[in-house]
Design a protein around this nucleic acid. Structure first.
Length: 160
DNA sequence: GCCAACGTTGGC
DNA sequence: GCCAACGTTGGC
């Protein structure tokens, strides 16, 4: 049987909206990742993310922006129902049910990092030069991470 | 709160 | 299709 090539990703979340602790506390430590409303991010969700891919969980817009945990893709892309919900902050009146514009995946927590890795620290790590997160003006809420970057992050946090 | 860096919208 | 205006993200 051919081995699917595993990919690595990083997702951002504002901890006041949904934190890694919230993910750990979710049923089966799993949540649907609704609310992605950027085409580049959606394309990564749709075309890149495969079940079992490992995902860094990043806290943005907080006192100490940091990578705080690792999760994995538990379900591949499917339509995000909030786009059709007029009550939702993610409502998109232009999206049609026959051809949904926005997709989401399910993410399951794997483990919290033994220590969070602040953005300020990551900026000084040679092995992470070129990481999308560290690019000036980077705003992508779903972004690819290389295997080398993923491993470097694990080691920095004290994981094998 | 400021503002740089983007993405999106809409007039033309 | 161009591009200015506007809105959003997110670090600081």
């Amino acid at each position: 049987m051919a081995t699917a090539k595993r990919s690595y990703w990083l997702v951002k979340s504002e901890p006041t909206t949904f934190s890694f602790d919230d993910l750990l506390a979710s049923p089966d430590r799993t949540t649907s990742w609704e609310g992605v409303r950027n085409y580049a991010a959606r394309n990564f969700l749709r075309d890149g993310m495969r079940r079992g891919d490992q995902v860094l969980f990043y806290h943005s817009s907080t006192e100490v922006p940091a990578v705080v945990g690792i999760c994995e893709v538990a379900r591949e892309a499917y339509p995000d129902p909030t786009q059709f919900d007029p009550q939702s902050e993610y409502h998109d009146p232009k999206s049609r049910a026959e051809e949904p514009t926005w997709l989401m995946v399910d993410l399951r927590a794997v483990e919290a990092l033994p220590r969070p890795l602040p953005l300020t620290e990551l900026k000084g790590v040679t092995a992470l030069a070129g990481m999308e997160l560290l690019r000036r003006g980077s705003r992508l809420s779903v972004q690819p991470v290389t295997a080398a970057q993923f491993t470097a992050i694990r080691r920095l946090a004290g994981l094998r």
